[in-house]
Nucleic acid binder design. Structure first.
Lengths: 338, 338
DNA sequence: GTGAAAGCGCTAACAA
DNA sequence: TTGTTAGCGCTTTCAC
């Protein structure tokens, strides 16, 4: 039986409300009484039951973050960004991992909201848009990052311009002289995947390069997909001279296939992707990559929630579009295209 | 104003208890009544308030996981292990990141317990052992992984034998002919750091190699520490011919220093560490490493909690020690020691 | 088979 | 300044 408010009230012959007030610093409590209470609390090791508090207050001072893959360093940085802001505002952060499973995403959205988090930062993997609508309408701040929901526009968003970023990276390869470009992207119901495809195609078009559908590969945002698709391509007569992958895992898989075929990077195939950050300093070749400001995405998302918490009646939705950077590296440089 | 139990009760002219019973499948409810209720729930999109439920039930069907660094792939795998088991048992997992900060660790322990999680998996960074004792005594399952708390032994634990693992990796280097071994480890108040030091030293001793304290470096488990310590060492007249690092970040930092000095791996200095898994396949050189069964550590920790949930009066504490594997790679092979 | 009512542990009006 | 009390939204006994 854990100790609770009334226990320490009884012990000190004061009322529960007096104890509650001193704990919360609300209302007026005599100096001497407060000190006695504080001492008793400290001595007994009393910890308020946060569940009861939340029930009463109708707020939990916590944020939820839902990501597809906690082991992806992009998301890890987003989380750290959220945490920094939350922490500064005395909020806690609960991170949930969906493993790219729509079912789990729905489950965690429900669970977090049922647990009354004050706001949600979510990288959706494209669950039913209908799912979010009732929640968004309920007024709990809901900030999407990375992927956009497939729903109307009454939601908050922090992202980059994926079409443009993809265009930029493809243009870089074109600038290196490449005319035979391939793209491997993720599930097209995820906006990151489809927009990166769109930007890639637009770039080719603008450069007068005929679109070749057979060099647009669609898989999951995972190693295996990149590997499979590239393996398949390398069996054909003609192969691309440059590859864009919509995330780092896809590229690593593709590179594996390229090496297995005995080909060189960038001499035989130049490669580039999104979000290939190298924490080790040991990746070879160094990867040309669009780097999203992941930490900032997280911190801005959290700030939006904080703003809405302070100003509940605010029904404005914010769409923040950040600028990524293009990191040029040896995986695409030093050889002119074929 | 979100819809709640009494709203749907009122709407259907039944009592709240009847509605509650049908939702929970407890007690008896007439077939027809149940169907009407279920229909109304579905139609209205009613979601039970989990906070109120938890307050009543005194259980939340959720686990907390506290790790030092969410971007460390070792922890990411542990988390996935926890999630697998939790998910299979219909529990949710809340992940909290402490950034190696003791204050945050304490905060999250408190918050999660105040939020009545059913159990906690924690990789402590060596907070005040006193902190945990009251909680452990309170009967909430508390499973330590990775680092041991500095407290008596009434806690659960899933880990590896760090002394032995460290011995193994040092012995591997000795077997390669090295006699001038160095170690970079983490904060010695963390058991992983101190045990890895112990195993390393024991190995040298057993091989009749004199211990050289100047080649035992202690830093944080971060890149920068490895870099600083190794940079310092390389300024001296004599340098080690082989290095063991207590985690991967430390090693990557050290390697940076080694390269900056124009030295080669493994020809000039052979290196090895703990938990250098390479998801990209592009790390060069490939790192010799002790690999902990991270996923298993997480899943076993979660299973312990599940067992205790089922059997509340069980006051047994489990200490599970798993076997790591030694992955031999080019960072320490192919050259005989100097 | 159904409902009234008593809490779960806490906060906050309102009274005293 | 302090205490009484009515809930927060739900579950669960117990009576009907």
């Amino acid at each position: 039986m854990t100790i609770q408010l009334k226990d320490i009230a009884k012990q000190l012959n004061v009322s529960v409300s007096t104890v509650s007030k001193t704990i919360n610093g609300t209302g007026r409590v005599g100096k001497e009484t407060r000190e006695r209470i504080l001492a008793a609390i400290k001595e007994s090791g009393y910890q308020p039951n946060e569940v009861a508090r939340s029930l009463k207050r109708k707020s939990t001072r916590s944020l939820g973050v839902i990501v597809a893959d906690i082991s992806n360093s992009f998301y890890a940085k987003v989380i750290k960004g959220v945490e920094k802001v939350a922490s500064a505002n005395d909020y806690n952060v609960f991170v949930c991992n969906t493993d790219e499973k729509i079912g789990k995403e729905e489950e965690y959205v429900r669970v977090l909201l049922q647990n009354q988090v004050s706001g949600l930062v979510i990288a959706t993997v494209g669950g039913d848009p209908k799912l979010f609508q009732p929640y968004i309408n309920s007024g709990i701040p809901f900030v999407f990052i990375d992927n956009l929901p497939d729903t109307d526009d009454n939601f908050d968003l922090v992202t980059i311009d994926n079409v443009k970023a993809s265009y930029t990276i493809a243009q870089h390869l074109v600038d290196q002289g490449h005319r035979k470009l391939a793209l491997i992207t993720g599930p097209l119901n995820q906006s990151t995947a489809s927009e990166r495809k769109k930007g890639f195609q637009k770039c080719l078009e603008d450069n007068g390069i005929p679109l070749q559908d057979e060099w647009i590969g669609v898989g999951e945002f995972k190693n295996e997909s990149g590997y499979q698709i590239m393996t398949e391509w390398l069996k054909r007569d003609e192969r691309p001279s440059a590859l864009v992958a919509a995330n780092d895992f896809l590229l690593y898989g593709a590179i594996k296939a390229i090496y297995e075929e005995g080909l060189r990077i960038p001499q035989d195939i130049a490669v580039a992707c999104f979000d290939a950050t190298d924490e080790t300093g040991l990746l070879r070749p160094r990867i040309t990559s669009i780097i999203q400001p992941a930490f900032e995405i997280g911190s801005i998302a959290a700030e939006i929630i904080m703003r809405k918490e302070r100003n509940k009646e605010r029904k404005l939705f914010e769409k923040i579009v950040l600028e990524p950077t293009l990191l040029m590296n040896e995986s695409s440089l030093g050889v002119s295209g074929i």
